[in-house]
Computed example of a mutant assay.
Amino acid sequence: MPWNRSKIAVFDYFDKYIFLCEMYDEETDTMVELVLNFFPFDNSVQVIDPQKGKNLLRRVQLPTLTMEMLQIGNIVNIFAKLILIRDCAPITKRTLFNKMESTFAFIKPGPPSDNGKILTYIMKKGFRIVRMKNAKVTKELAMEIYQNCAGGEMLPIIIDYVTSGEVVALELVAPDAVKYFRSCLGATDPKKAAPGTLRYLYGHDTLRNVAHGCNTREDAAKIIDWFFGQENNRPKVPYQATLKDCTCCVIKPHVLIDGHLGNVIDRISTSDIFYISAMAMFSVKIHDAKEFFEIYKGVLPEYEEMCIHLSEGKCVALEVKCNKPNMNVVQEFRKFCGPRDPDLCRQLYPDSLRALYGKNYVHNAVHCTDLDEDAELEVEYFFKLLANMHD
């Protein structure tokens, strides 16, 4: 059913942002259209059912809701109700999303230890990462990407280089994202790149110059579909998970919102023990989260909250492997993450992931596999089951 915008026209536009949302109603087994008003002055929210013309939630302060969460396509948790943001009022769109667009970028083959730092740089520059995966680029795809970017004798060399290893593919969103990311990259030759640009900081030479960015919106849209689109319910570019000799790590939504995604990846990639063999960003629906965490149902009192949190934003799933063949990767990585309680971690294991980036039992930075026999199943859940169900 299309939105009846006349029903929200009576609201005052000047002291709030207005979002058009929907929520699943379990009692009626239907999707309910809602209007969410966010008042930045005091961080309060109001939820209205425009069909019934009444408040579903009277205006109340919600400190846990931040502007970073209020993005079109995100799911927000409003007092344990999961609300999907579908659109926003025109004035809200002009105010918050003026000139907002997507671009495509990938981190070129290089030291995996640089990937986390590069992701942190990108996020600090104001880009929102909405899709991400490590992948292998075929020569045919590389030719399509570079046909408008390079020519002459260098082209075969570039193609050979970008197909020689894994890349980290990204869809980035920001105002004027295509042009802005190109400026953040810097000159093709790192020696000529402006100080502070990606290539100045991490580039080696004209070939190994950190990353690629698209020149036009049209190229960006086309390559985003190539890397992240599906064909016959399967990803066009396969995920890299091997589902062998591994453990599962899920970087939780609050870590992405807080801007620490790159830091977590950096900690894992620069360790002497572990490496990331596959990673991808997912949106997890509530029923999928409940299925994934089902082992904790009736065991952990935070089970429901854990499921809700995994569903209220993007998460990043990792297949993690061990550099030492005789080491138990599941148990060693659990030690690396630390106990579930971040406060306990900070006292006993201050360098663990949960000590550094966790907040409480639910917002504790990462999920990691508990039992050896579950590791491959958990990795498979994301990289095989969810990958074939969602974009």
Rank of each mutant, 00 (worst) to 15 (best):
R5G: 14
V10A: 13
T247F: 08
N43Y: 10
A221T: 09
T216M: 12
I85D: 02
F282K: 04
Y24G: 05
R208P: 04
N364D: 08
H212L: 01
L70G: 01
P109N: 08
D374Q: 14
L385Y: 11
T28E: 10
I273F: 06
K7A: 15
Y161W: 04
N37E: 11
S6M: 10
V60T: 10
K384I: 03
K191V: 07
Y303I: 00
V366T: 12
N77P: 02
A365K: 08
R346G: 10
A135N: 06
F79C: 13
E291G: 03
C88E: 07
L185E: 11
P195E: 07
M1C: 02
L300H: 03
R340H: 10
M23D: 05
Y121C: 00
Q51L: 09
S352I: 14
E144K: 06
V178I: 11
E312T: 11
K324P: 01
Y17W: 14
A187P: 00
D205P: 02
V299E: 06
F104H: 01
P40M: 07
V76G: 03
T30M: 08
N232E: 09
S113G: 06
Q61F: 01
A89R: 12
L385G: 02
G165D: 07
R58M: 14
M306P: 04
E378H: 01
A169S: 03
K314I: 05
Y361N: 15
F228L: 08
H254E: 12
K236H: 02
F14T: 15
Q347N: 09
T120V: 05
A169G: 01
R217N: 15
R131D: 10
E312P: 02
D351H: 11
E140L: 04
F228W: 10
D189W: 05
R94C: 02
L56F: 13
L36V: 03
P156C: 02
Y275I: 04
L141A: 01
N37A: 13
D343W: 14
K125H: 12
H287K: 13
C345K: 13
A150D: 02
Y275C: 12
I75Y: 03
C315N: 07
A80E: 15
E218T: 06
A278T: 00
V35W: 08
D114F: 06
T92V: 07
G229I: 10
A317E: 15
K192D: 11
N43C: 12
L155W: 00
K81E: 12
L84N: 11
L371S: 12
N115K: 03
K244N: 13
A89T: 11
M306W: 14
N148K: 00
K93R: 08
K179C: 09
G262F: 08
G358S: 10
E319H: 06
A387S: 04
L82Q: 09
W3R: 07
K108S: 12
F97C: 00
L348R: 15
I145P: 00
K222P: 01
E291D: 07
F79W: 15
R334I: 03
F181L: 11
V32F: 05
S352M: 14
H212A: 01
I75F: 02
H309Q: 12
F336M: 13
